[in-house]
Each structure stands twice: as structure tokens, then as C-alpha cells.
């Protein structure tokens, strides 16, 4: 009897140790909804078989913070954005709610972003929000990674939480996809590294005491324990570039927009987790 239980424990340990990383077998469930945190890689990815949400690379404690909307500190900023949604700003005397009945009308949008518009331009969520502010409301554009913008991105993105990421990469999007892909694989900076060196070649491995993730952006904006605020996609790209001692591209610039399209498409098949919690 005793021997059996010891054998079972040992067997359990062996199984656990064959996992690539800590949370690979954990299940992300928020308010009773189960999330897909690993899926077959989309066909366009040549070097990766399985895509993983960044959530699976985190410790139990960090994972738990995303599993309850009260424990998730992002929701303080979501609530602030709900107020902003109804706050009149600008010369036209309008609020978001003057045109958009409620944040729920944006259900599904986050899963498709970024996308190419009718004019053939690549557009991102912050640009849609600032477009409304400057053109319809007569208000000042928000700073790309400022508190108001990241909160509104979280509120809008939340409406698509649980939707499968489905970013278009063909047709009009193809040239942007190709440009983003090239950037992803181009070594830059003093450390001469590309995105792929960490997030494709070494995900699951330790970088000092951290688990490297695949660098998926399906949960952005994300609340990071490191800086205790919501972090935008381009803000995170910028941070990565600084880490490899490169001069970061501009937030909202053509390079990061194309890179966002490419990186977003690497999560096609995972679910939108906005607003997520990471370390």
C-alpha cells in the first residue's frame, strides 16, 4: 500500500518533469469559462508546432491573479475606462457613449486587430480610439501607452475575451505581414538579437530566473507585477528592444504596427485574454 503510493508520487514527479514548463498542464478558467492556452500553430509558422499563451509560463500565484476578475488588478483600470467611456471630452461635446451605445458593441473587434482598412492602411486599436477622439469628439489624442489609453484598450479588448484570435494576413494585409515577419527575424541592437532568438528558439527555457514565453500578445494590454500598471503591445515591444540594447522604434510607428500584425497572427488559434496578468 505504502509502496504503491510512493510509486504513484514518483510517477507523478516524472510526468511533471517532462513538461516543458511549469504551467503547461494548468487550466485557465475565468468566471467558469475555460480558455484555450495552447493550440496547433497556424500554418504560416514554420518553426513552431504548438502555440502557448504567456499565462502557461507563469507561476501558480501569478496565474491565479488572472482567474478572478476581482483579484486581477487590471479591472481597476477597466472601471476607470468605463467612466471615461461616458465622460464628455473635446469641442464636439461628445463622449464615446454618444456614438457607441456601450462598450459591448465592440465584441469581437480585439480578436481581429490589427487590420487593414478600406483605404489600404494598417490600423491598430489605439489608432481607432484616437481617431474617434480627434475627428469625432474634437478632443486631444491620448498618449499611446498612457493610463487613459491602456485602460480604454483593456475595456474594449475585454469585450472580445474568450474569442479566438483571427487576424487576417492575406490580401491587403500580406505586405504588412511580410514586413512584420522580416522585423521579427532581424537581429538588432548591441546584443544582436531578433524576437525569434528568445521567443521562438528559447521559449520555456530560463532567462536568468524567468521563464521565457513565446511573446504572444493575445492578453494585451496586460497588468505586469513589475510595474503594476497596464502595458500596451508597443510599450512591451519597446521594452524588449531596450533589453537587447537596440534603439526602439516609435510606439505607433509603421515598424511596430507591422510587427504587431505579425506577432498577433502568431496567436491565431489562441483566445483573447485581455486584460491578462503577467510578471
Amino acid at each position: 500500500m505504502k509502496l504503491n503510493s510512493i510509486t504513484a508520487i514518483v510517477a507523478g514527479l516524472v510526468v511533471a518533469s517532462t513538461s516543458a514548463f511549469a504551467g503547461e498542464d494548468s487550466v485557465l478558467s475565468i468566471d467558469g469559462q475555460e480558455f484555450i492556452t495552447q493550440a496547433a500553430a497556424p500554418a504560416h509558422m514554420e518553426n513552431v508546432d504548438t502555440i502557448y499563451s504567456g499565462w502557461v509560463f507563469r507561476t501558480d500565484e501569478t496565474q491565479a491573479l488572472e482567474m478572478d476578475d476581482f483579484d486581477n488588478p487590471s479591472f481597476v483600470f477597466v472601471e476607470q475606462a468605463e467612466e471615461l467611456f461616458e465622460t464628455v471630452d473635446g469641442s464636439a461635446g461628445k463622449a464615446c457613449v454618444s456614438c457607441h451605445e456601450s462598450p459591448e458593441v465592440f465584441a469581437g473587434l480585439r480578436a481581429k486587430m490589427p487590420r487593414v482598412n478600406d483605404a489600404g492602411e494598417l490600423e491598430t486599436l489605439p489608432e481607432l480610439i484616437n481617431g474617434c477622439r480627434t475627428e469625432r469628439m474634437g478632443a486631444e489624442a491620448w498618449k499611446w501607452s498612457g493610463g487613459q489609453m491602456s485602460g480604454m484598450l483593456a475595456l474594449v479588448g475585454l469585450q472580445s475575451r474568450g474569442d479566438i484570435v483571427d487576424v487576417a494576413i492575406d490580401g491587403a494585409a500580406a505586405p504588412f505581414f511580410e514586413k512584420g515577419k522580416e522585423l521579427y527575424y532581424t537581429r538588432v541592437g548591441q546584443l544582436d538579437m531578433s524576437c525569434a532568438n528568445c521567443h521562438e528558439d528559447n521559449y520555456g527555457n530560463m532567462i536568468r530566473a524567468d521563464h521565457l514565453s513565446q511573446g504572444q500578445i493575445n492578453g494585451f494590454p496586460t497588468y505586469r507585477l513589475k510595474n503594476t500598471k497596464l502595458n500596451t503591445i508597443h510599450g512591451r515591444f519597446k521594452g524588449c528592444m531596450k533589453n537587447i540594447r537596440a534603439t526602439p522604434f516609435k510606439e505607433g510607428g509603421e515598424e511596430f504596427k507591422a510587427l504587431e500584425l505579425y506577432v498577433a497572427s502568431r496567436a491565431n488559434g489562441l483566445m483573447v485574454e485581455t486584460p491578462s496578468v503577467r510578471n
Binding site: 536568468r208 524567468d210 512591451r236 533589453n243
Partner: peptide, 8 residues
């Protein structure tokens, strides 16, 4: 307390 990899 672990030291972050990049922390960027």
C-alpha cells in the same frame, strides 16, 4: 525572490 530575465 527571483531576478527577472529581462524585466523590460
Amino acid at each position: 525572490v527571483t531576478i527577472g530575465g529581462c524585466g523590460g
